[in-house]
Computed example of a mutant assay.
Amino acid sequence: MIDLDDTDRALLRALQQDATLTAAELGRQSGVSQSVAWRRVKRLTEAGVIKGRRLDLDREALGFGVTVFLGIKLVAKGHGSLENFERAVSAIPEVQTVQHVLGRYDYRLQVVARDLSDFERVLRRRIMTLPGAGEVEANVVLSEERRPGPIG
């Protein structure tokens, strides 16, 4: 774990809001020079605090109006069955995230679809046919509020 000071936290908060900011813009927002901002971001990246920068797409604008979280319990839980399930589920483009979790279910998936009938198609033809898939619970997202991560 790396120690973060106030400047590091300010840089991270600014990047969370807009990952496309230049070092000059980051420096202005954080009260440091461009070169200090650049060196700090480089250090945070090399330390693994910044894992990358990603593009945040508007799913609805792209025609994906439904997001569903699925809890999936596997029928068998051997090492091979976990690997087979993970490999197969990762090949489904509508599945945005795959999380191996503790609790009632073995996996938690985030699935996007154009509408509920499209989600039903994905569920029946792709997810329910996955190797080892057993019990499934679906939670349809009604609304979503984005919250920044814990920087302090």
Rank of each mutant, 00 (worst) to 15 (best):
R9D: 02
Q17L: 09
L116V: 10
D58W: 05
R124E: 15
I127M: 03
T45A: 14
V98M: 09
A61F: 11
R53N: 10
S30N: 11
A91F: 08
L70W: 05
M128K: 15
L44M: 04
E137C: 09
V136W: 03
T45I: 07
H79A: 12
L15W: 13
R59H: 12
R87F: 00
R146E: 08
L11K: 02
V75R: 13
E94Y: 03
S90D: 07
V112N: 13
A37N: 04
V111Y: 03
R53F: 14
A113P: 04
R28I: 09
I2D: 06
T22H: 08
R147K: 12
A24K: 12
V41N: 00
L70R: 02
F64N: 04
E83W: 04
Y105C: 06
D6A: 13
R147E: 08
R125E: 15
I2H: 08
G134V: 02
D56T: 15
L15P: 03
L82H: 15
A61Q: 14
Q99F: 12
T97I: 02
Q96C: 01
M1A: 14
L70I: 05
D3C: 08
M128D: 09
E135F: 14
Q110N: 00
E94Q: 14
E137T: 13
F69H: 12
D5W: 06
A37I: 05
D8S: 06
R54L: 12
Q17T: 14
R87W: 00
R126Q: 15
R13V: 10
L116N: 12
Y107A: 05
S81P: 07
L21G: 05
V122M: 06
L15H: 12
R121K: 13
R125T: 14
L26H: 11
R9G: 03
E137A: 13
R9C: 06
L74W: 08
K51R: 15
T22D: 09
V140G: 08
R53Q: 14
V140T: 12
I92W: 03
D115S: 07
I2N: 07
F85H: 01
A23W: 03
T129G: 01
R54H: 11
A23D: 13
R9Y: 00
G103W: 12
L55M: 10
L57K: 13
G71L: 05
A14G: 11
H79D: 05
R114D: 07
V32R: 01
S33I: 02
L21Q: 12
F85T: 02
D58Y: 06
P131V: 07
V136F: 02
L55Q: 12
L116C: 06
R104A: 13
R9V: 15
V141P: 02
